[in-house]
Amino acid sequence: MQHSYIDKYAGLDSFLHGLDPRAKVIVSFIFIFAVVLSNPTAYLSFALYGLALLILLAVSKVPSSFVFKKTLIVIPFVALVALSIPFMKGKDGLALFTGILIKSYLSIFCMTMLTSTTKFPRLLKAMERMKVPSIFIMIMSFMYRYLFVLIDEFHRMQRARDSRSLGRVGRWDTVKVLSNIIGVLFVRSYERAERVYLSMCSRGFNGEIKTLD
């Protein structure tokens, strides 16, 4: 098993990692709302928000290159909005563009800080205590639990394919084999879900999950 890419740095030890996840969730959400709702030309407050995040980044010991790479995800949308600058009539397209760019960048920065200082199960637990419907929390916990199992299964199938297909394989054949892998993955996942459900029933599951913490 090799999947450290999900909440990769959440296991580090720092002041931020030790905080109550509820506090981090609430502060992050308020921060994002504040950023999104602020005036697009409020450059001074943007600078202060950015400074606050940079201080948190320094405190958290999360590598800054990791956070920087994560924030690049906005590019396709930035391109679309950049294209529309010349089409904006009566409004200052460039100011709008920089405003949006800064806002989305700050929000993504903030979310990255939240998830790279909080382990996902703890994040879910915090959301549960904050009255997010438990059915969603349960589905998300199951997804988190089985995601790694399915990814492993998928890697095994890829390995099996690679060890059987020597030499050049045409593009169409690659697409067909990959689609069959997805098909097999679906059938196996479905059967796994049924087995999991039966074993849950045999342990007294009645629609509610009880945990120790």
């Binding site: 997804m143 988190y144 639990r145 995601l147 593009r171 697409v175 990959l178 997805i182 459900y197 629609g207």
Partner: peptide, 29 residues
């Protein structure tokens, strides 16, 4: 969905979400 599946919904939806997620990771040329 919970009317049709009852308790089974939770594990089934969770594993299926994981399936779609894993399926999205496959890169096609």
């Amino acid at each position: 969905v919970s009317g049709a599946l009852k308790d089974k919904m939770i594990p089934l939806m969770g594993v299926m979400a994981a399936f779609i997620f894993a399926g999205q990771m496959l890169n096609f040329p």
